[in-house]
Amino acid sequence: MDSRNPYYVHHSDQPGHMLVPTKLNGANYQSWSKAMIHALIAKNKVGFIDGSLAAPSKETHPVDFALWNQSNSMILSWLSHSVEPDLAEGIIHAKSALEVWVELRDQFSQKNAPAIFQI
């Protein structure tokens, strides 16, 4: 498979890898998410978290679905290893990397209104 294909998994890509140097703890969401986006762009996998690469139909495109599912599972594993253990518990049950990404964004990207008001 061509390495430019988003379903391509390089032999060095392992589920236990941590793609970014610092785990998400909640307070560091902005820098963590930027670092994670850069890592996923480098691996040609950002489409899994930005919604541009939806799951193919399992019934009509079973081969593409299997490839998508393999890559999605790898990204889910990378995400779970890139967050603090208490946050990882919620990732384990997710079905898609997009679902996890949206949940983390919604939970941690909230602006601090009082701090903004003071500025």
Score class of each variant (00 low, 15 high):
1 M>N: 11
2 D>E: 07
3 S>N: 10
4 R>T: 15
4 R>P: 07
5 N>A: 09
5 N>K: 01
8 Y>S: 09
9 V>A: 06
10 H>D: 13
11 H>P: 13
13 D>C: 08
16 G>A: 09
16 G>E: 10
18 M>G: 10
19 L>E: 09
20 V>Y: 08
21 P>I: 04
23 K>W: 08
23 K>S: 11
25 N>V: 13
25 N>H: 14
25 N>F: 13
26 G>C: 02
26 G>D: 03
27 A>H: 15
29 Y>S: 03
30 Q>C: 12
32 W>V: 05
32 W>T: 05
34 K>M: 15
34 K>N: 13
34 K>F: 14
36 M>F: 07
38 H>I: 15
41 I>L: 12
42 A>Y: 09
42 A>R: 08
44 N>G: 02
45 K>R: 07
45 K>H: 05
46 V>T: 05
47 G>V: 00
47 G>A: 02
48 F>A: 00
48 F>K: 01
49 I>G: 00
50 D>L: 00
51 G>M: 01
51 G>N: 01
51 G>Y: 00
52 S>F: 00
52 S>Q: 00
54 A>S: 12
54 A>C: 07
55 A>P: 06
55 A>C: 09
55 A>E: 08
59 E>C: 08
60 T>D: 09
63 V>H: 12
64 D>Y: 03
65 F>L: 06
65 F>C: 07
66 A>L: 11
66 A>S: 12
69 N>D: 14
69 N>P: 01
71 S>E: 06
71 S>R: 12
73 S>N: 13
74 M>N: 02
76 L>C: 05
78 W>S: 02
78 W>L: 03
78 W>R: 00
78 W>Q: 01
79 L>Y: 06
79 L>S: 04
80 S>Y: 06
80 S>K: 09
82 S>P: 01
82 S>G: 07
82 S>H: 01
83 V>F: 06
84 E>C: 11
84 E>G: 04
85 P>R: 09
85 P>N: 09
86 D>N: 14
87 L>I: 12
89 E>Q: 14
91 I>S: 05
91 I>W: 08
92 I>V: 13
94 A>G: 03
94 A>I: 09
95 K>P: 06
95 K>Y: 12
95 K>H: 14
95 K>L: 14
96 S>M: 05
99 E>H: 04
101 W>Y: 07
103 E>Q: 13
103 E>F: 13
103 E>C: 11
104 L>D: 02
104 L>Y: 01
105 R>T: 13
107 Q>E: 11
107 Q>C: 07
107 Q>F: 02
107 Q>I: 06
108 F>W: 06
109 S>Q: 09
111 K>N: 07
112 N>W: 10
114 P>R: 02
115 A>V: 10
116 I>E: 11
116 I>N: 04
116 I>R: 10
117 F>A: 11
117 F>L: 14
117 F>P: 03
118 Q>P: 07
118 Q>I: 14
